[in-house]
Design a binder for these strands. Structure first.
Length: 566
RNA sequence: UGGCUGAUCGUCCAAUGGUAGGACUCAGGACUUUGGAUCCUGCUAUGAAGGUUCGAAUCCUUCUCAGCCAGCCA
């Protein structure tokens, strides 16, 4: 069933990858089939950049009635772990995509890959090389100059077969030999200068255990895996553009199904670090609490922070797909977030910086249950009761003794509305020795129950509140961007510590008072705290004290006006 | 300075030889029981120079700038 309001914003947009597919389908290429794949390496958690690739690959398959596989590119046992495999599956599912029964691993193809390597050796297109890593680098040459052939390049097929078999059998130590494709040491493209196909690694693999001590490289593995799975369009990021001739070479020389590799620009988000290596560093050195720290740009971090999968998908559809090196403003992500959360989040009242209000003419022991709308954007969300009594808390900044111009909130002598409750007028304040306001005295108009004005009079402001004796103490975790710099991922100087850009104020812990209806909430439940922002219950919550992560604040027009006045 | 790829409002994306458009941001305004949401208005762009054409963001030439590539990482 389709919901145009929900679905329309996520409609696929025209982009060059889609154009290629449209054309291929029209020409009947691959029997007009569309089959894509999302191929993460299980060496870290998925981040928002991966979400772009996931939405593209799964989205395209969906749109053209095709399929999208999940495939783990697990050819490097020294960096890969099952923890990452599990988290990746969880995150893709959470984002809203389904690979059905098509979860594959490149390691599933190790036997086939080995056979194909033997085939290339027999065809005189691959050889065992005894050069060390340093020597290979030296022989490879430099830009503008051709490399030199390895002295082992002309070994006989028999010798290559024998050596390769013994490499597999574990006769040689790590790094002693490699299997290389015999292509062209003079190619201007370094990837074609006799690239390594297999290296010796006596390491245990998270899936194949100790079965192998030689492992295929990415270049030798990826295209063949695509081919085996019948992939039609192999969509990857720009840095693999130079690898495409090699991708094509393996497939052509093996004479097997040849998918088309198409490259697009990976996501670059302002004030955000999207390098897996550096994110791992933040986790390992304890700069954040883990991969799912709500400040992390990982999908698990965003989830814990309170982002919805719909919001992330919406963002991904808005940024488009191209080949330009762009930097997306964080504001676009937050805009998509607010737009989605606004229509989906239940409202609740919470006071973050409480100051006491006493309604002097309200009966001492009376408690009234006020009707409050759960979500003005969604009538189906219903209503709830909020208890009202003589002593309340309001936000300290919603009262000013000497209000600036254009300040509409409470001040002595002024009437404002308490949301869903009564109109109140401030009469006086009490202060402590230091001059800080301790109590605000008000009177209420009993005729305005629910916040209505039977006489039609207007008040400029409506503020939120909680009943003091009914309210629940809670902890709020307020986040700001992890990095101060707009582009923290430019590593001009490799020796410079990128953590120097870390925002020391990225986390602020506060406590406040919240409406008792919060009692039914569970971790990951999302709310809008009226007039404050979107918050998500954290798993650190206890029965005593709920903990909330601030997902993102509400647009604050007043803050903008006031800061301009200064 | 070897190769590959790219360059359109401040940002991102579209226009596929025929009126440069949308979104975000920003600036105004309307409305409002969230200074929220919503609605309206406005601002700003084809990297440069030549050429082809009735007509060029689009085709050609030269230049400039940017990203990526010298892992037995992916």
């Amino acid at each position: 069933m389709s919901n145009p309001v929900e679905d329309a914003p996520e409609l696929p947009r025209s982009n060059f990858v889609r154009d290629i597919i449209v054309e291929d389908v029209r020409n009947g290429k691959n029997q007009a089939r569309v089959h894509t794949r999302f191929p993460p390496e299980p060496n870290g958690y998925l981040h928002i950049g991966h979400a772009k690739a996931i939405c593209l690959n799964f989205g395209l398959a969906q749109e053209f009635g095709g399929q999208c596989n999940l495939r783990f590119d697990d050819t490097n046992p020294t960096k890969e772990e099952v923890e990452y495999v599990d988290s990746i599956m969880e995150d893709v599912r959470w984002l809203g995509f389904d690979w059905e029964d098509r979860c594959y691993y490149a390691s599933d193809y190790f036997d086939q890959l080995y056979e194909w390597a033997v085939q290339l050796i027999k065809a005189g297109k691959a050889f065992v090389c005894d050069l060390s890593a340093d020597q290979i680098r030296e022989y490879r040459g430099i830009p503008g100059q051709p490399g030199r052939n390895s002295p082992y390049r002309d070994r006989t097929v028999e010798e290559n077969l024998d050596l390769f078999t013994r490499m597999k059998a574990g006769e040689f130590p790590d790094g002693a030999r490699t299997l290389r494709a015999k292509i062209d040491m003079a190619s201007p493209n370094f990837n074609m200068r006799d690239p390594v196909m297999y290296r010796i690694l006596h390491a245990s693999h998270h899936r194949t255990g100790d079965k192998w001590c030689i492992y295929p490289t990415y270049d030798y593995t990826h295209g063949e895996s695509d081919s085996i799975e019948g992939i039609t369009h192999s969509i990857c990021t720009l840095e693999f553009e130079d690898h495409r001739p090699l991708y094509d070479w393996y497939l052509e020389n093996l004479g097997i199904h040849h998918p088309q590799q198409i490259e697009f620009d990976r996501l670059h988000l302002s004030n955000t670090m999207l390098s897996k290596r550096k994110l791992l560093h933040l986790v390992q050195r304890g700069y954040v609490s883990g991969w799912d720290d709500p400040r992390m740009p990982t999908l698990s971090g965003f989830r814990r922070r309170g982002y919805s999968p719909e919001a992330i998908r919406l963002f991904c559809s808005r940024i488009g797909v191209s080949k330009t090196n762009g930097l997306i403003e964080l504001g676009l992500l937050e805009h998509s977030l607010r737009e989605e959360l606004n229509r989906s989040s239940a409202r609740i009242m919470a006071v973050m910086d409480p100051v006491k209000v006493v309604v002097d003419n309200y009966p001492d022991d009376l408690v009234e249950e006020m009707d409050a709308v759960n979500n003005p954007e969604d009538p189906a969300a219903g209503t709830r009761h909020v208890p009202f009594s003589k002593t309340l808390y309001i936000e300290r900044e919603d009262f000013r003794e000497n209000p600036p111009k254009q300040y509409h909130r409470l001040t002595i002598g002024r009437e404002v509305r308490l949301r869903y409750a009564y109109l109140i007028t401030c009469t006086s304040v009490e202060k402590d020795a230091s001059g800080e306001i301790t109590v605000i005295h008000c009177t209420y108009d009993p005729a305005t129950r629910g916040g209505n004005t039977p006489d039609g009079r207007k008040v400029k402001s409506t503020i939120h509140w909680v009943s003091a004796k009914h309210s629940v103490d809670f902890e709020a975790r307020l986040y700001e961007q992890l990095f101060n710099e707009e582009n923290p991922d430019t590593e001009e100087d490799p020796n410079k510590d990128f953590t120097a850009n870390l925002n020391p104020k990225s986390l602020e812990v506060r406590s406040g008072k919240i409406e008792p209806s919060v009692r039914g909430a569970k971790p990951l439940d999302r709310f809008q705290f009226e007039r404050l922002g979107y918050f998500c219950m954290d798993r650190d919550s206890t029965g005593e004290k709920p903990v909330f992560n601030r997902t993102v604040g509400l647009r604050d027009t007043w803050a903008k006006i006031e800061s301009k006045g200064r």
